[in-house]
Nucleic acid binder design. Sequence first.
DNA 1: TTAAATTGCAAAACCGGTTTTGCAATTTAA
DNA 2: TTAAATTGCAAAACCGGTTTTGCAATTTAA
Lengths: 330, 330
Amino acid sequence: MSINEIAKYLKVSKSTVSLVINGKAEQGRISKALAKRILDYVEEIGYKPNALAQSLATGKSKTIGLIVENIGDSFFGPIALYIEENLRRYGYQVFYSSTMGDTKISNEILETMIEKKVEGIIISPAVGQLKNIQKIRNKNFPLVVFDRRVIGLSTNYVGTDNYSSSKKAVQHLVDQGFKKIAMITIDSDQPQMTDRLRGYEEVLNDNFLVSFTLKLPYRSNQDKGLGELLSFLHKYPELDALYFSTNYLCVKTLKVLQSIGKSTNYGIAAFDDHELFELYTPNITCIRQPLEAIANEIVKMIISRLNDSIELIEECIIPSELIIRASSKK
Amino acid sequence: MSINEIAKYLKVSKSTVSLVINGKAEQGRISKALAKRILDYVEEIGYKPNALAQSLATGKSKTIGLIVENIGDSFFGPIALYIEENLRRYGYQVFYSSTMGDTKISNEILETMIEKKVEGIIISPAVGQLKNIQKIRNKNFPLVVFDRRVIGLSTNYVGTDNYSSSKKAVQHLVDQGFKKIAMITIDSDQPQMTDRLRGYEEVLNDNFLVSFTLKLPYRSNQDKGLGELLSFLHKYPELDALYFSTNYLCVKTLKVLQSIGKSTNYGIAAFDDHELFELYTPNITCIRQPLEAIANEIVKMIISRLNDSIELIEECIIPSELIIRASSKK
DNA sequence: TTAAATTGCAAAACCGGTTTTGCAATTTAA
DNA sequence: TTAAATTGCAAAACCGGTTTTGCAATTTAA
């Protein structure tokens, strides 16, 4: 049932119906009697306007696009939950897509969402998206980047301080008496990862300790790199602690360690918390990003950009917490 | 830049432009020369059609709605990932929403998605959605229900066999020599939960064992019910095993147990796997639903419904696997 | 050479809305 | 009593597409 059919049935013009339905009877100088007749009929047949047509007419799609690496993981999943719940309160629906780190896919998704006229984009970018993101930023299109920056482009951004948080975690390991601390990270130029690595190297350097770094191939959904991991651990038997740039690398490694029966031989710390860490024996120290707070800031920022007329770029750095769990070495 | 502006600039009609862009130059009998001129210009300015207008005109929004309980959890998160990746290959975008089990919110979301003209709905329904889901099913609207059925309504459905899987898990505990097995579940009429409970009761009954059931209040994102949990365990000190109707209840309980130092005193099994279970000490036996297979079937089914002209209702029951991890009691 | 068929496109109708404009009919003010 | 203002709505223009129809101009067939 369309507004045209309603108009025809009631023998009024569709403009009248539209005005009444949208509570603009007064401003359209529609008589109370006619307004009531229309409202009654609309109610009776349970008419709901076609949102696509409304969007086309008003230029407001009430839709936001969310692009993350993997909505199924323990970082982006909860973030996606909070973002969507929050945006819903503002009347927005959310399109989501997982890139799995693939630049080409990520750019395609970006394009499709823009064609579908999302009003804004929230994205945790893959590497190599500079040009495409720059393009939409240049149009002053509402955009919030989170978790990792786009290198070489200043945008609205929400994230934690990866560098200093990483330092905190590694310093904790040092304070616990570990001397041979390896960092296990992914082979990627994602800025949040390089920042975490920098933090690690800085702390070791400050403490006159040797650094051991393993960069595993970046494919968050695959089991690649397990061989490299084992040979790395085998090559450096002197290691006494492992620091992971992300929680899933830690989990993956724990599985490998368990399979070879070395579970408890290392001091362990990881970036990003995981339900496992609290219950694993021994408990695992980690950096915990406040997921809900991050999501709230993202939503606050995108909503601002939707309403701003002037161009504005904001950064919001949300501190992370060092969750100390492991008992000391000595 | 719209198709109208292109037409105006090239001094042709917009119908001509539309036909050419959509590869229908031949069928519209547009000369090759003109077609090339149009395509060249379209290419030059990087024109992309407004998908909203297209949807309005064609009646195809290329959008699917996904409604789950909590996209941030370890069951729905991966399912959401696979569904979206899969649907993307068919050219569909996905709206998602988490209901957190709230019937009212779930119905509102359903309505909004329909107003936005999604072509189909994939839903893991909250309780009490019978009427609203019935309404859209009666319109022969493409709909796939998963994980839990809508009681009293036959719909397309994808899920596992909760009853028999539950029996397998409980039987395993019995076979391991446990005699006082409690089931910890949620206080909800969700059919997948009642089926799991039935399986538990049946096995205990068949083995002449007493059943102990604790129903915790249903709020998947809260820490309510921990007190009840403790007093339940305190009330029945004779319990030697715990069976959980869902993985997050198990995790929650393990945290409580850990805090009171009783971690390893029970035999444990849970419905749905969790990364923790493989690495926890001792390992935890569970029923593992094949998430990717479930998502694939869901997508296959919704795509079929989108293309079917005839009304068809299918059920797809995907077997779950009993992952045996815990060592035996004796 | 002329009627019929084909070519090549424009124009119109449609999808379903919103918003501005315009115009009788009525009411108010002078 | 008459001009001006207001009331109450319809009509038109617009958002940006798709698809069908229609009609000159050209080409083909008889």
